[in-house]
Write a protein that binds this DNA or RNA. Structure first.
Lengths: 221, 221
DNA sequence: ATAGTTGCATACCGATTGGTATGTATGTAT
DNA sequence: ATACATACATACCAATCGGTATGCAACTAT
């Protein structure tokens, strides 16, 4: 495991990847492993995820894996912290934190997600939700990480709604906290429904309903 | 495996247990296996459920298990068809199918469930929902079974609401189908939230909110 | 140039997995 | 009483699991 580097490089590529690895080659295989692990976990869950399969899919050997991660749990945590959280931050946190019109932003995210959503995406469901539901009763590490992400989601959504009210983009009667919770719960419900029915169309329909529903909180001109 | 019996007994105990087994002793161990399998699956999911652990917990041997079930999948299906579906039928279907006041019935179920709900129940979540979410993308058998249960739930709820409207126990403006879907989705959301936070109190709070919310659909005298 | 670190490959390990083969005691039907 | 089906128990199996030990090539710092 490479958690304490003796060499402290300042190579050019360290500018956009944090320096967990000294050489670029190391960071590359590390990212490949994370992506493959994410795919495997997304498909079958963390417990059933097979390290051998991840290695077979990437062509990377077991020696490399255990050079970068101390064990399976460590790999799982890294997937949450780096792959899942990063993607979550880009799709939800950053847009929400930089707007005074949260309704439009949410609708745009839903539309964009719907457009890029594949059939497999819909059938596999939200990876963060999956992991939270599978692992929360079994492992504190996963439980803490996923519940933190949900809390962050709710808070940034709540704050955006408050700003929206001040800017006149959200009706003043709206209860920001309740609305935030409701939105997340409903979206979770939609994803779960699509997963249990295994139908992408179900998800798109729910999404359209949610987009329409959000319109109710936009002030009339 | 005992799926085609040569002997066709009509012993007294066959009156309340269907005659999958000829001898009472066989039916007993079968039920013990189903219950232990349910517990194990509820705790860690189907894929991670260990047959060896189920056997250890019951003291039953592997020979007995494979006498009653052809393989792990067969055992899993039996848990859904017999344990889960039976319990679901008793708690939801029968009360809903025999009432013209669905609001009161739903509230009573929620209250009773809340009272008997243990901390572990809340942390492990709804077993049907768990199985649906874990296995739907992976196995048609589980997907079909769980989605059928959800459909049955929604239909019986919808029908009860319609009867409630005719009997004057539900406001006539209520959209039965939408209300049924919303109730199920919300309850699922509550259970999921409690599971991800690992807090029973979260579930009870959601339940109280739901009970209160249902009151809105009762006609004012 | 050389010493030391990093990155990875190969081979191996015990434990556990779901599943099977075989033997036997108990019950049932005639 | 006898023939047969039922209901197990025991022992074994290959495959896979996560994890480790060791060796070596490539890169880095001095």
């Amino acid at each position: 495991m490479c958690f304490k580097k003796k060499t402290n490089s300042d190579a050019w590529w360290h500018l956009w990847k944090c320096n967990r690895c000294v050489q670029k080659r190391g960071e590359d295989t590390r990212q490949k492993l994370l992506q493959a692990a994410f795919d495997e976990i997304h498909k079958v869950g963390f417990q059933a995820a097979s390290l051998s399969k991840i290695l077979k899919n990437t062509g990377i050997t077991k020696g490399a894996l255990y050079h970068h991660f101390s064990n399976k749990l460590d790999l799982g945590y890294a997937v949450v912290d780096e792959v899942l959280f990063t993607s979550f931050k880009e799709t939800w946190l950053e847009p929400l934190n930089n707007t005074e019109d949260p309704i439009s932003v949410l609708q745009e995210i839903l539309i964009a997600s719907g457009d890029s959503m594949t059939d497999e995406d819909a059938r596999l469901g939200c990876p963060i939700h999956n992991l939270a539901q599978e692992m929360s009763p079994l492992d504190k590490g996963f439980q803490q990480r996923t519940v933190d992400i949900y809390a962050l989601w709710r808070k940034s959504l709540e704050a955006a709604i408050e700003r929206g009210k001040l800017a006149g983009n959200v009706v003043p009667e709206a209860d920001a906290r309740r609305l935030a919770i409701l939105f997340i719960a409903t979206l979770d419900g939609c994803m779960g429904l699509a997963k249990s029915t295994q139908r992408l169309e179900m998800l798109l329909e729910c999404g359209r309903g949610l987009i329409e529903h959000l319109e109710l909180f936009r002030p009339k001109k």
